[in-house]
Design a protein around this nucleic acid. Sequence first.
DNA 1: GTCTATATAAAGATAGAC
DNA 2: GTCTATCTTTATATAGAC
Lengths: 200, 200
Amino acid sequence: MTAEMTTPRERLLDAAERIFSAKGFSATTLRDISSKLSLSHASLYYHFPGGKEELFAAVTERNIMHHGVGLLHSIEAAGTDLRGQLRGAAAWLLSQSPMDLIRMAETDMPALPEHVAKKLMDLVYVQMILRLRQVFQAGVDTGELGPATDAGLMAGAFLGLIESLHSIPEFAVRRSRTDMAFELVEVLLKGLDYSKGGLK
Amino acid sequence: MTAEMTTPRERLLDAAERIFSAKGFSATTLRDISSKLSLSHASLYYHFPGGKEELFAAVTERNIMHHGVGLLHSIEAAGTDLRGQLRGAAAWLLSQSPMDLIRMAETDMPALPEHVAKKLMDLVYVQMILRLRQVFQAGVDTGELGPATDAGLMAGAFLGLIESLHSIPEFAVRRSRTDMAFELVEVLLKGLDYSKGGLK
DNA sequence: GTCTATATAAAGATAGAC
DNA sequence: GTCTATCTTTATATAGAC
């Protein structure tokens, strides 16, 4: 059996993902992508007859799935320990290139046909938000977290926190991002309040 | 004395800000903006001879200053109470249209000349990051927050949290965003850990 | 599968009339 | 100040050769 490392399609998706991630949908041109592969831009239409939109949708769907699967594995690898699960999830997200979910939702999606945008945002919800929500909800169920905890809110907040770490400019990074993420996990769990009760 | 409410330049900036905020720099066209004012796109060059770049830079600078000044006022209005300051800052940021700082930094800025991008990002740092950092640092200095608190990290994290609230789709908003922001302020201060010490 | 060539559309920008 | 007209560039997309 021939065991190929990567298909041409995947190499194309890899290159496209890097550029779409960096510049977003509308600022990226097909020539940006094809030139990285030493191809003419017209050749991209052989692989993705639907052009830029189809390519972006394929890239984004694969990226979301990749993040979701990795999130699931990193959470499962931590067993049932809440802190470990959150640390694992944070470390995984930071090990990947930034998704910029806000730009994706607010800026890129409106440029796509509505049913495509809906499908992709639903995928983000299932693969990322729901999985993190389950982590927080499990914490509530076991009594580790307060019963009033809004697990859905915390899932979104967690993603927002990690994304903000991703966007810290390289020159301003004194500690590793993972280090900072772990500190933020501690803040979420224990709070900043040093005296634990000093604030009413 | 003639006391005009708004200058033509400001009306132009208002319209441009709405569209740039929604679609980002590269997806916005001058015709998008001029049509909202029932102008021809060529007329914009009378007010901003530098074209799209100059207009975007002016819009963004004004927007950052507006956010910074409002942030300062909302913090000062809360007196010396840390919780009140954070709540005030959060409520102010949520009362304004989203800035999408990550997209601004990662996607819009690279499309501008470097010195313009640097000036704008420096302005974000001074007007927004530093002001929030001072709030957290004051909490450390008074002993309200733990001495190991990284005030700079928390400033960025706070902005990330509020921005993530801004991007919750309207149909998914059950409680008000301000309500959720106040809950996140409580989490930052006190943590999610219900038993306060149950997690090692 | 990839190329060259080309069609088509859209956007930034300028010139000059009013 | 705003217009119409036009220039130039750039991008998506298609056609057809190899």
